[in-house]
Computed example of a mutant assay.
Amino acid sequence: MESIRVERLTAQHDRTQFICPPGGLDTYLRERARQDIRRRAAAVFVGVYPSAPQRILGYYTLSALSLKLQDIPVPYQRPLARYPDVGVTLLGRLAVDVAFHGQHIGEFLLLDALRRVVSSSSTIATAGVVVDALEGAESFYTHYGFLPLTGQRYWLPLNTVQSLFRVPFDPLLTEDNS
């Protein structure tokens, strides 16, 4: 199987062939993704095969979000700053073209997104990753350790994300410090 390359969405990518109807994920890519990039509402990343770099296999979006401290599960509140709002990274959308289902591209894109969050967390503070899962996608996220918040919203604490990539914990974020 050919390796996948993840890159920022550009005008060179063919958005017209992308099909992923649940939740309007294909419509978003065709009609709103480039606008969100221009407006700095979201960063959009696409997975492609290097041999066919215009054909989008799947995509995800990342943006900043804040949660109320009390909306985070109590065990995870303690090591966080005592501000009313906590900065997190929103994995706004994650979609795979129906032609590529069953090839673990969703997993690959999720791990790429989480790797980007870990990488940027030393520059821009984030307490974790939040996703608003579409109905039926909850088990995908919980399989990777996401914890339920409210409704269809799930979160993955930054320490858990770091542990996926064996990044040393920041001692200021561990629960052992009082």
Results as ranks from 00 to 15, higher is better:
S139G: 05
A64C: 06
D85L: 14
N159L: 14
G24M: 04
A127N: 06
E31S: 09
P157F: 04
S163R: 14
Y60M: 06
R8Y: 14
Q77P: 07
A127Y: 04
Y49V: 02
F100W: 08
V88L: 09
N159C: 06
Q12R: 14
A33D: 01
R55V: 13
R153I: 01
D170S: 10
A41P: 00
P73S: 06
L90W: 07
D36A: 04
R15V: 15
E135V: 10
R40G: 01
V98M: 08
R166Q: 11
T160C: 03
R153Y: 00
T10R: 13
G145M: 00
F140W: 00
S119G: 13
V86I: 15
L29G: 04
Q12F: 15
R116E: 12
E138M: 01
P168E: 12
V161Y: 03
F165V: 06
P21I: 10
H101M: 02
R8I: 09
A81C: 06
I37D: 02
R93S: 10
V44W: 10
L80W: 05
N177A: 13
E135L: 06
T142C: 02
D170N: 14
E138D: 04
I124E: 08
Q17C: 13
S120M: 15
V130H: 03
H104D: 13
D97W: 00
L147P: 00
Y83A: 15
G102R: 03
A11M: 11
G58T: 07
N177F: 10
P75R: 08
S122M: 11
I105R: 04
Q12L: 14
F45L: 02
S163E: 09
A137C: 05
S51V: 09
H101E: 11
D132P: 04
S178M: 11
S63W: 07
V129C: 09
L57I: 09
V88D: 06
L172A: 15
R39M: 07
S178I: 14
G151C: 03
G23R: 01
Q70H: 13
D176C: 07
T160F: 08
V86E: 03
V130K: 02
D176G: 12
R40L: 10
A41S: 08
S122N: 13
L147H: 01
G92Y: 06
C20P: 03
G47F: 01
G92A: 08
L158K: 03
P53G: 04
S63C: 11
Y144T: 02
T174V: 15
Q17E: 15
A99P: 00
P73T: 05
D14W: 08
R78G: 07
Q35V: 10
V118C: 15
V98F: 01
T16W: 09
A137D: 04
T89L: 01
Y28W: 14
I19R: 15
V86A: 09
E7P: 03
A95N: 05
A95Q: 05
Q35G: 01
D176H: 12
Q103E: 13
R82W: 08
P84W: 08
I72H: 05
L147R: 05
V48K: 02
D97S: 10
G128A: 05
S121N: 12
S120H: 13
A43H: 10
S51H: 12
F100H: 12
A99C: 04
L134Q: 09
A137Y: 01
L109Y: 08
